[in-house]
Simulated scan of single mutants.
Amino acid sequence: MASDTQILKGLLEGCILKIVSENETYGYEICEKLIEYGFEAISESSVYPILIRLEKKKLLYSVMKKSPLGPMRKYYYLTDEGGEELKAFTVSWGKIKKNVDSVLEG
């Protein structure tokens, strides 16, 4: 399906907001968590542009911190607006999932 990528981008924004809402985290760790959740085809080249976009929308903010393993890392945090967006995403996803399930179940 040609539009899989577009669908996935929108869903990934919501999933990333959820991951960041649970704890401070950095880009590579977000990628690893998405892979653990089953998004096997996800790469850093997909995630970092989304993080930049979410920061520009003021849904996330970041802080550079010293890493225990080397160079500084950019840690991401949810803003209040990001929390509201996450709530809206959760409601929208619930409705969309219910509708798609209804169609698929016939």
Rank of each mutant, 00 (worst) to 15 (best):
G83F: 01
V63Y: 06
P49S: 08
Y28D: 14
L78T: 05
P71L: 11
E55R: 15
S62H: 13
T79G: 04
Y75D: 08
L12Q: 09
I7T: 06
I19T: 04
T90C: 05
R73M: 12
Y75F: 15
D101H: 07
L51W: 11
E22N: 07
E81C: 01
Y75M: 15
K57F: 00
K74P: 01
E44S: 10
Y75W: 15
L54K: 10
L86W: 02
E84K: 15
M64N: 12
V20Y: 09
E36F: 11
K97F: 03
S21T: 09
S92V: 01
K65V: 06
L11I: 01
Y75A: 07
P68M: 04
L12A: 13
I52P: 08
E81L: 08
P68W: 02
W93K: 13
I52E: 14
R53P: 07
K56A: 11
L59R: 13
I16A: 11
Y77K: 03
K9F: 06
N99H: 08
G83L: 02
G14R: 00
I7M: 10
S46N: 11
E24I: 04
T5W: 06
L54W: 05
Y37K: 10
S46E: 08
E84Y: 09
E84G: 11
Y37P: 00
Y76A: 07
E22P: 02
K66V: 13
D101K: 15
K74Q: 15
L59N: 11
Y76E: 02
K58S: 13
N99I: 04
A88Y: 00
Y48L: 12
Y28L: 15
S62V: 04
Q6R: 13
L17P: 11
I96T: 02
E55A: 14
S67A: 14
G82T: 05
S46Y: 11
M72P: 02
S46F: 10
